[in-house]
Design a protein around this nucleic acid. Structure first.
Length: 530
RNA sequence: GGCCCCAUCGUCUAGCGGUUAGGACACGGCCCUUUCAAGGCCGCGACGCGGGUUCGAUUCCCGUUGGGGUCACCA
């Protein structure tokens, strides 16, 4: 790491919308690479075929390009260390897995999933930390090789020393020590032959000559595993740096439940890339200290950041992502635009020709002059002021309103869950997916009340073009964003009420057929490591 | 629960042994103004707690509390 040129990377996985955390990591990694005169790479971490979402990779490219976080090497631009898509590197992983096993750093494990599940349940019942019991650990490697060659399904595991500790040096926190007793023989290659994150990432970081691994703090506890993998290969470990996690207002890890997290949302809602980047740069950092007497300045550009940012001085408290502050920073950048630039960018934001074309069939029947366009199309063109009063059925009497607000909160939550899974985002699909929502209407609500709540949430009014067409045109990120806004405009039900509701949902009295209702817990946004 | 990380105004942060603890957002007030913004001024508001170390702790150490993360053939 000493005199090699600085090389950093982000490795998002294409499992959903491009995440604001990806942009945060991208920003820091880009800045550090630029400061070191090196390269910033983009690697797509798509080793989990079950979570892969079509179009997600393109959306990541698009969002990062929009932000101006351009990569020097990546799947689309190529580079000397490619390929940069992990699914295209399987031969490399297989080769390295064999080498790893040959070196005795890992071993083949033939335990069945059933056995491991049973083991885990047992351990949990005894209130122990679930971990692999090492049954295959000391089997004869030659025997393992023979069974593997015979095509017997198996995984490859890391051989963690039975005693002692591993200490990793984090750039921001110093040495962090993990007893091996708390680690387990992690799976490195899955039964399907694909590597797990841990393995692929280490192999790639080495082969791509990454010098600084800058990633989110959630990875800190797997750092010793990675250190062991690098050591197993006899490779030099890059500099490790774990960044604090972006937080919701309640300090939990940022989530789409409590914040818009999709970069596409911020783009479509009319934030400037330089504004969002600036705001992200403020997370953990006070801005360039180039003011009077070294005063810090919190409105700055990417170039300023490259000039002044000091990774080692980053604040470690998990910063709360505050939309109000983001708007303020964005406003500063907006107001600095020369009139000419403003005009060009405003035009680009409002609508390109194809978007106006799509708008035509929805607004034409509802307008007589262009003078009425803005009024009819207001919620397509810009932000909406939420009207909590419109989210509950109009005929509810004032005493019923409070209870109805709670019902609306839950109904919007259900809608959010259903809508998140709609792909592709078309009116027909939306219609199909939301059928069950009407049937699942709260007691005392008619199906149309639920759809009126959705209408009010996306538009702030009760008279609009057809719901599904409107949602389609509005786009997924903004639709979900507004539903979330509407929900936050309502008082949040008590924890108790939420638990009660959760329980009722798990054991539905009579699930309406084809309701498509929410079943399993939704997977949290896969920001990947970036 | 085990392990790991973290801790200055409600929020983002400055501070790196001696400061009236600074700035920004938000909030409140005033000014400017035909209105609303923007802008200017003022105000509100923080070192979680307990031990040490030290002449002196927001700052260093330990503990505690609180928050967060992580414990998958997901990343």
């Amino acid at each position: 790491m000493s005199d090699r040129p600085v090389r950093t990377r982000i490795a998002p996985s294409p499992t959903g919308d491009p995440h604001v955390g990806t942009a945060y990591m991208g920003l820091v990694n880009l800045v550090v690479a630029r400061q070191g005169g090196g390269q910033f790479l983009l690697r797509i971490d798509d080793t989990d075929r079950t979570r892969y979402r079509a179009g997600s990779e393109e959306a990541i490219f698009e969002a990062l390009r929009w932000l101006g976080l351009t990569w020097d090497e990546g799947p689309d631009v190529g580079g000397p260390k490619g390929p940069y898509r992990q699914s295209e590197r399987t031969a490399l992983y297989r080769e390295h897995a064999d080498l790893f096993v040959a070196r005795g750093a890992g071993y083949r494990c033939f335990c069945s999933k059933e056995r491991l599940d049973a083991l885990r349940d047992e351990q949990r019942a005894r209130k122990e930390t679930p971990r692999y019991d090492g049954r295959c650990r000391d089997a004869d490697p030659a025997e393992g090789a023979r069974r593997a060659a015979a095509g017997e399904p198996h995984v490859v595991r890391l051989r963690v020393p039975t005693d002692g500790t591993t200490t990793v040096r984090d750039l921001l926190r110093g040495d962090v020590t993990f007893p091996h007793a708390d680690l387990q023989d992690q799976v490195l290659v899955k039964e399907d032959g694909f590597p797990t994150y841990h393995f692929a990432s280490c192999v790639d970081d080495h082969l791509m000559e990454i010098t600084h691994i800058i990633r989110a703090e959630e990875w800190l506890t797997s750092a010793p595993l990675h250190a062991l993998i690098f050591a197993g290969f006899g490779w030099e470990l890059p500099v490790l740096c774990h960044m604090p996690l972006l937080r919701n207002a309640d300090k939990s890890k940022i989530s789409k439940r409590k914040n818009p997290t999709s970069l596409l949302y911020y783009r479509d809602a009319g934030f400037l890339p330089e504004g969002l980047l600036n705001f992200l740069g403020l997370m953990g950092w006070g801005g360039p200290k180039d003011g009077e007497g070294g005063a810090s300045r919190e409105v700055f550009t990417l170039d300023d950041m490259v000039r002044h940012f000091r990774l080692a001085e980053l604040a470690l408290g998990g910063p709360v992502f505050d939309p109000a502050k983001l708007r303020h920073i964005n406003a500063a950048h907006l107001r600095a635009l020369p009139a000419r630039t403003f005009a060009a960018r405003a035009l680009a934001f409002l609508a390109d020709e194809s978007r106006l074309e799509a708008l035509a069939p929805l607004v034409l029947p509802r307008m007589e002059t262009f003078g009425q366009l803005a009024q009819v199309a207001d919620f397509f063109l810009g932000d909406v002021t939420q009207r909590p009063d419109l989210l509950v059925p109009a005929r509810k009497t004032p005493p019923e309103q409070a209870a109805a607000a709670e019902e609306a909160w839950f109904a919007l939550g259900d809608a959010l869950e259903v809508l998140e899974r709609v792909d592709p985002w078309t009116a027909a699909n939306l219609d199909q997916a939301c059928r069950g929502l009407g049937d699942a209407a709260p007691a005392g609500w008619k199906p149309k009340d639920v759809f009126m709540a959705l209408r009010a949430a996306i538009s702030g009014k009760t008279a609009t073009p057809p719901l599904w067409e409107s949602m389609e045109l509005l786009g997924k990120s903004r639709t979900l964003g507004r539903l979330g806004d509407a929900r936050r405009a309502l008082p949040e039900p008590s924890k108790k009420a939420q638990e009660r509701r959760e329980k009722a949902r798990r054991a539905p009295p009579a699930a309406p057929a084809g309701a498509g209702g929410p079943t399993g817990a939704p997977t949290p946004a896969g920001a990947g490591e970036a």
